[in-house]
Design a protein around this nucleic acid. Structure first.
Length: 511
RNA sequence: GGCUCCAUGGUCAAGAGGUUUAAGACGUCGCCCUCUCAAGGCGGAAUCACGAGUUCGAUUCUCGUUGGGGCUACCA
């Protein structure tokens, strides 16, 4: 079998070689210790807290080492692609402070920044094919014409025989097909997938040093993994290897769900004759399932409330979310923050090796607590500006009122926030605005037929704060507006719900 | 099922064979402060999954068990 002839037969249009690309994408000129990381999402349009958690690890590992972080779009699965997902992704990440030095960061996804592109996998077909062609020419990959039915049949045969499922060894029908057989299929108009010809033996183990987990040992891969799909696009495994090599990634930070395919990846790096990047397998963010009570990975389907847009809608300060994520990413961050309350988080010495290697449970209480601290460090004016921005997007009617009564709002935001015992009860914009509503509504509710002791409580609250807003000559007109608004919001119908010392936010802070 | 990763209180976790009567934070409970409490102060309860082994000594090392996570696609 002439492998070179086969490679030409399969990829006549590909003239470039991996060596050509090697020259096109020169090694980066990096300071010692500087890391190059990448965020490589697929454009499915939904970003949740777990994605941000991973993204922050990438961003911090790169930037705290003086390196670079780029954005690569993994759009090799056309079926899953969602229109317009990329700009949303970029905007959302930017909102939470994740910025990229290069990558697919154009407004409409068409612009790219950096010399290692294209940064969208769908535009790198020729690069992948050149590498696949190289492997075929070396006899390390081959075309496979097995149909879905054939594969399914093999699988059930394997299950019956209690063997490991998959296409490998004797089950790989086209592994050793001769040129005539291949030509016959090709002439019949069939398009093959390209499989890697694995020489691995699962009874042999290889060792590798993971950037987070330390030494790990895994069995070699036996599977003849598909590297090029019928549509001419690579699978994740191959795209990862080619891209992270040519884009000169030094640290591949990714979720631990990739750990089990690491044997395939190292095998592919070896076959191409390339050095491995440092693999950093991160843990996933988990939650307790509401129904089963079991721990599980955050899911985009089951946990819409964990989508990043949820936090944006509630008006969490992005800085608060970031601080929370930092504390679970590097556990000494909290201590560092306590010692350096005024420092920017970028001054913290972030390290992959300090990352936890067991799954972390998402904790809303902790997020809220951290948010209180973050807001306690803000001035009332800063809080006002943020809340106004939030209101303009989510509560336009409120925004108008805020603008008209800016000074009053700022005074209220500032209640008891200075001095020896500053209050820390502001958490997120929606809650803050609810606080304001309660505060204003008190005057309104007091006049209604609520239980007497509640009225007394409210009265005393108002007495205390009256000075804050009676500074202006006449509040009556303004109070009238508040009353109308309160009525509109339905408060007038439920004064009876008001309980003595209700704990204004308890029960509102999430679930 | 196979392979694999993980395992300190309810949660995040420090700890790296003796210096630990196992830090700290969140939550929780109690008390105090007080013109409200949602803030603040003080204090309490609560953890090394289990079983062997190595060792003078194990939360720390090894093996097993159990539990949980992940993978097992022409998805990423």
């Amino acid at each position: 079998m002439d492998h070179k002839e086969l490679a030409e037969l399969l990829f006549p249009e590909i003239t470039k070689t991996p060596e050509d690309y090697e020259r096109s994408y020169p090694k980066r000129d990096l300071a010692p210790g500087a890391a190059v990381t990448r965020l490589a999402p697929s454009p499915t349009g939904f970003i949740h807290l777990g994605n941000l958690y991973g993204a922050m690890a990438d961003e911090r590992i790169a930037h705290s080492s003086g390196g670079f972080c780029y954005l690569r779009i993994e759009d090799t699965d056309e079926k899953r692609e969602v229109e317009g997902a990329i700009p949303v992704l970029i905007d959302t990440l930017a909102y939470f402070g994740i910025n990229f030095d290069e990558g697919a960061i154009g407004e409409d996804g068409s612009d790219e920044r950096g010399i290692y592109g294209p940064y969208r996998q769908s535009r790198r077909r020729d690069i992948y094919k050149a590498c696949v062609k190289y492997l075929v020419a070396q006899g390390k990959a081959y075309p496979c014409f097995m149909s879905e039915e054939e594969i399914a049949a093999v699988r059930s045969e394997q299950e019956a025989a209690k063997e490991n499922p998959g296409i490998y060894g004797k089950y790989a029908r086209y592994r050793d097909a001769d040129m005539d057989e291949i030509k016959k299929h090709l002439d019949a108009g069939e398009t093959p997938v390209i499989r890697f010809r694995s020489e691995g033996d699962p009874s042999r183990y290889f060792k590798i040093e993971d950037g987070i987990r330390g030494k790990i040992s895994m069995p070699e891969n036996v599977q003849d993994t598909v590297i090029l799909k019928q549509v001419g696009l690579p699978t994740y495994h191959f795209a990862h290897v080619v891209d992270d090599h040519f884009m000169r990634t030094t640290h591949v930070v990714r979720g631990e769900e990739w750990l089990s395919s690491l044997p395939i990846h190292v095998q592919l790096f070896d076959a191409m004759g390339w050095e491995y990047p440092i693999f950093c397998h991160n843990t996933v963010l988990m939650k307790v399932d509401d129904e089963t009570g079991q721990k599980r990975k955050l899911s985009k389907r089951k946990d819409p409330e964990l989508g990043l847009s949820y936090y944006k809608q509630l008006g969490y300060f992005p800085e608060a979310v970031r601080e929370y994520l930092m504390t679970i990413l590097n556990s000494d961050y909290e201590e560092w923050r306590a010692a350096n309350p005024a420092s920017d988080y970028s001054e913290f010495a972030f390290a992959a090796s300090k990352m936890s290697n067991s799954g972390t449970m998402f904790d809303l209480n902790k997020l809220n607590d951290i948010s209180k601290d973050v807001l306690a460090r803000k001035t009332a004016a800063e809080i006002f500006d943020f809340c106004l921005g939030w209101a303009e997007e989510y509560k336009p009617d409120k925004a108008a009122d805020m603008k008209a009564n800016k000074e009053l709002y700022i005074k209220i935001f500032d209640i008891d926030r200075s001095g020896d015992k500053p209050r820390k009860d502001l958490i997120y914009a929606e809650q803050i605005m609810r606080f304001i509503s309660y505060f204003f509504d008190a005057e309104f509710v007091r006049e209604s037929d609520m239980p007497k002791e509640c009225a007394e409580d409210l009265k005393s609250i108002l007495e205390k704060y009256r000075g804050l807003y009676s500074a202006s000559d006449d509040n009556s007109e303004w109070f009238g507006k508040i009353k109308a608004l309160a009525a509109e919001l339905g408060y007038a119908e439920k004064p009876g719900d008001y309980k003595r010392n209700p704990g204004m936010f308890k029960g509102h802070v999430g679930h």
